[in-house]
Structure formats: structure tokens, C-alpha cells
Simulated scan of single mutants.
Amino acid sequence: MKRSLLVLILAALLGGCATPLPRAGWQRCELFFGFAIPGGGEVSAGDWQAFVDGEVTPRFPQGLTVLPAQGQWRNAAGHVEREPSRVLVLLLPDDDAGASARIDELRSRYRERFRQEAVGRACTAAQVVF
């Protein structure tokens, strides 16, 4: 009798220590920013940080991740371009109705500011826990 009570108490205590399960209802959006500027040069570290501070953070103040990358893609003229890049990762709740428009604003601002042909976007369903 005592043993089964001990097992029950331990099970209850250990259940409280479990990591919460990831919740559905989120998106993981990745944006791909090339750093090569047409005609020569690259987006500097200072210019990138100014873009993050002035454009990204105000639109997504709840958080973000930036990963350094080396990108490759085929441009509109059919040439393979290789360049330093950054991947911006955003985790967004599905009920954030304005998120898609804010992402497209970022893409447009970056293309205009740094004369880019494109900024890639990939969004997938995600299960998230913090």
C-alpha cells in the first residue's frame, strides 16, 4: 500500500517537471537577404544593423533571429549569383493578421534601399514552445 502511494506521489511530482509540448498555430518565416549590391559593393555590417533597427525591429518587436549565410541563386538574366547573405527567422502566431503585410513591406524596403532584384520568403507551419 505504501509503495503504490509513493509511486503515485513521484508520478505527480515528475509530471510537473515535464517540458511543455510545442503548440501548433504558429508560422516560421525565413527571409533571405543578399548583400551584393548591383554595380559593385556589398551591404555593410552597419547598413544591415541600421535596417534591422529601423525596419525589422519596429515591425516585429517580440523577437527575431538573424543567421549569417552564403547564398546562391539564379538571377533574372540567368546567371548564378553567389554572395554573402543573412537569413532572418521570425516565429509568428497564426492569429497575427498583419504579419504577412509587414513581411512584404520589409522585403520591398530592402529591395529599394539596396537595389536588390529579390528578397526570398519561405513560411511554414511550426510547433513552438518558449
Rank of each mutant, 00 (worst) to 15 (best):
K2S: 14
R3N: 11
S4I: 12
L6N: 07
V7M: 11
L8S: 13
L8M: 13
I9H: 08
L10V: 05
L13H: 10
G15S: 15
P20I: 01
P20H: 10
L21V: 13
P22N: 09
R23L: 13
G25Q: 05
G25D: 03
G25I: 05
G25M: 03
W26I: 06
W26L: 01
Q27V: 09
R28Q: 15
F32S: 07
F32R: 07
F33T: 00
F33I: 01
F33H: 05
A36K: 12
G39Q: 07
G39K: 06
G39S: 06
G41E: 10
G41K: 04
G41T: 02
E42D: 15
V43E: 10
V43S: 09
V43P: 04
G46H: 11
W48L: 12
W48K: 07
F51V: 02
F51G: 06
V52R: 04
E55V: 00
T57H: 03
T57A: 12
P58N: 12
R59D: 02
R59Y: 00
T65W: 05
P68A: 14
Q70F: 11
N75C: 08
A76P: 03
A76R: 11
G78N: 03
E81Y: 03
E83L: 01
L88Y: 02
L91G: 01
D94T: 11
D95V: 07
A99T: 09
E105V: 10
E112A: 13
R113G: 01
R113C: 01
R115W: 12
V119R: 04
A122M: 13
C123P: 00
C123F: 03
T124D: 03
A126H: 04
A126D: 03
V128R: 06
V128N: 02
V128E: 01
V129C: 06
